[in-house]
Design a protein around this nucleic acid. Structure first.
Lengths: 222, 222
DNA sequence: CGAAGACGAGACGGAACCGTTCCGTCTCGA
DNA sequence: TCGAGACGGAACGGTTCCGTCTCGTCTTCG
């Protein structure tokens, strides 16, 4: 029978990227992802790379799985063998790259920690692919709660807890008053750079992060 | 007659300037009674309101002019009589609403000016429709230069010059050092609130803007 | 009072995708 | 050696949307 057309499977499981039969010689499409997640299969790798390139070029809403398959040099069936839908694929792949945005960065001083944090954010947003993908996913997340939830779990919460720890360490060292407003401090750590690099797309002067760090420290101590 | 299907008209002209007020994209009533023909076009008003509602619900990429027409209770021809394309329509309507985001706000003190500026930004981003539309248009602007250009001309430059004037007034009054970093100060004025309200969608405490103002003043004086 | 024109509705051809299914090929592991 | 199964590729029916173009109705103005 030509199939019962499943209406919307509503994301049963995150679906793993293949149990990985370790042989896999032959093809080596050498592409690499922005963050470089650990993908076993070379076909899966090519599909993931093509996915991010298409996502940056077209945006989530216009992303066509046919275009992803074509760019990866794969058939659509290869995609549907791995993920159940565009949303499933997006949540899975984006979570994978976002998780490895690690970096403890305990430099011993508040200024060093803040500068390290800002540098990391700036580096991420200076990736051309990331600079296009992130605002798009954020906008799409406002409209697709499942996507927003997955992104927040993978990205925001991780980064947020790291920033909070940064502040707590400074309080413990006596570099910041104990009643520093954590909420606003977090917004100050992320907002100005995001605004400049991802929204207004303005280039930064070489000493930008240094100057910004000094101004943020003054704000935290207010 | 199957007609010649024009492929992509590529925006020949900005079309109607649309003097309709369209302040907040509220509801437009169905029709006007033949009392005062001096009033603006009620059909155009209804189309504009429907456009913003659809834009908030679906995003620019998925926005369907058919859906706009249906929501406005209009025919598609009524839209194509006024604009040549979705991009033309978007640039025209968004510019119209963005321009009236005025407000001189010269309160006489730096703190008053900053608080007034932040309040205005927060009010704008607390509009549910605006909070959905703005990130979407920003993301789309990253891949549609014409749209980005129009938005920047209408919104960013206006707001940016106002913020710059705010800083210059403070310098003239001696409230800020003459060498205050204008670039970073502008990012600090816009970024943290945008991050909180439009990206992370976190609610704000009642005294949030007051506390943020104090911290920003400290940063400016660093 | 009658022609002109804007109106809502919607059919139309063409295009793009989706998600599925079928090929014939190629590489594995038993 | 040979079957299992993933592979690229192509096609399918079903949607959705675009932009054009009729319809028949309703105002409006000369």
């Amino acid at each position: 029978m030509p199939s019962a057309p499943t209406p919307q499977p509503s994301l049963p499981e995150p679906s793993l990227p293949e149990p990985a039969t370790a042989g896999a010689p032959g093809r080596a499409p050498g592409r690499r992802l922005p963050g470089g997640p650990v993908l076993q299969d070379s076909v899966t790798e090519a599909i993931a790379a093509a996915f991010f390139e298409e996502l940056a070029a077209a945006g989530y809403a216009r992303l066509s799985l046919e275009a992803v398959a074509k760019r990866a040099g794969a058939g659509k069936a290869a995609i549907y063998r791995r993920w159940t839908s565009k949303l499933d694929m997006t949540v899975d792949l984006v979570s994978a790259v976002a998780v490895n945005a690690s970096g403890a960065a305990d430099t011993g001083t508040l200024r060093g920690d803040v500068l390290a944090f800002l540098t990391e954010v700036a580096d991420a947003l200076n990736e051309p692919l990331a600079a296009r993908i992130i605002p798009d996913l954020i906008a799409e997340g406002g409209r697709t709660p499942e996507l927003a939830e997955a992104l927040f779990a993978a990205v925001r919460d991780t980064r947020r807890s790291r920033a909070t720890q940064l502040l707590e360490r400074a309080v413990a060292r006596g570099e910041l008053p104990a009643d520093v407003d954590r909420e606003i401090a977090l917004d100050l750590l992320a907002g100005p750079l995001y605004w400049r690099l991802a929204v207004v797309h303005t280039p930064t002067a070489p000493d930008h992060l240094d100057r910004l760090t000094d101004m943020l420290l003054a704000a935290f101590r207010a």
